[in-house]
Simulated scan of single mutants.
Amino acid sequence: MKRLLLSLVLVLPLLAGCTKKDNEIAIGEYDSMTGSEATFGLSSNKGVRLAIDEINAAGGVKGKKLALTAMDDQGKNEEAAAAVTRLITQNKVVAILGGVASGRSKAAAPIAQSKGVPFLSTGSTNPDVTKIGNFVFRVCFIDPFQGFVMAKFANENLKLKKVAILRDVKNDYSVGLADAFVQEFKKRGGEIVDDLSYQSGDIDFKAQLTQIRSKNPDGIYIPGYYTEVGLIAQQARQLGIKAPLMGGDGWDSDKLSEIGKDAINGNYYSNHYTTESTDPAVTEFIKKFKAKYNETPDALAALGYDAAKILAAAIERAHDLSGNAIRDELAKTKDFAGVTGKITLNENRDAVKSAVIIQVDGKNRKYVTTISP
């Protein structure tokens, strides 16, 4: 009941006034605003709403206001599919934003594709997402690049020779990053001393970590979500494992430090942007976000913001509000100056952009370096 009430609290304010009117353009968003990875969806939604508020304050798109309907997928694939179905059939949206988790986007995007409704994912990094069809796009980089980035960093910056892998075997995102890291690290002459698995929701990782400890790796790559990574970090240090831990953008949440405490400090993950950037676009975004929400925006908030801005620009350029017209303009996105970098959507509808390496220091996220495609 509490989850249902929270979902209604989140969605109802966005639904207010969102009935399609002649002076409005209906767009949809679905995200995980409750469930185990709720910080991802909540952050993405805040970024989307901030962008839409700015766009509407500046006159809207084609002289009309953007009317956002946001739905909570509760962190479940079937709910993501149901949300997108409702957005298209009931709310009559012209395009859909959202989808931080790759598994949920893989469940939801085929519906948008079949209906000819443009689908722009904020944070789904698994390569298969955009392979669903020509109406499916994303503003984030993909897993092979993110895996490449951390393998390069491990090899060139950390000088690691032997790495163990601990992957969430039920998570498309985690498996994709792990596969890409293994391929690139081996290509660079590194050795994978062990490759073990866990499942989302697990809380005891000591068996896997004990086995990894026996292999004495120089580092451990854990491309999972903060919910399990924080626990893994604690248990690794309890077992006397001192090797650096590495991961992907699934670590990017304040909850990581709450769960991992001091054990997560000093470890590294790849991410979409850094709050330490001096780029005026980034500093202005952070300032506006803090003013609206009284918190520092994470990468998912930045991706949500960029996605909404890119979609609005495509709708503005489109000769009408049909799915085909908006789709065609999204495909033309080139060198868009986003908060998460300069974004070009390639022939596969994936974003071509740089990644940054972040080091955890309590709730601070220290920028280490940028790695380009």
Rank of each mutant, 00 (worst) to 15 (best):
D262A: 14
L321G: 12
D328K: 09
L303I: 01
L87N: 04
G47V: 02
L87G: 08
Y305H: 01
S270E: 12
Q183S: 06
L177F: 12
N348E: 14
I232V: 11
D194I: 15
T130P: 15
P144Q: 10
I142D: 01
A291F: 11
Y226N: 00
V175P: 07
I25T: 07
E258I: 13
P217W: 02
E37C: 07
A81H: 10
A307H: 02
A243G: 11
P127G: 09
R104E: 00
G116Q: 09
R327I: 13
I358C: 13
L8F: 07
K115C: 12
N171Q: 10
G147K: 03
S124Y: 01
V339R: 01
F205R: 09
G98I: 00
I52R: 00
R349T: 06
C140S: 14
K131N: 05
T210Y: 08
V136R: 00
G123C: 00
K292P: 05
D202A: 15
N155A: 13
A101D: 03
L245V: 11
Y305P: 01
P13G: 08
T34D: 03
V94G: 08
S200V: 01
A57S: 15
F289T: 03
G323P: 06
E347D: 10
A263Y: 00
Y198V: 05
V368A: 15
S257M: 05
V129A: 01
P13T: 10
Y273H: 14
K162D: 13
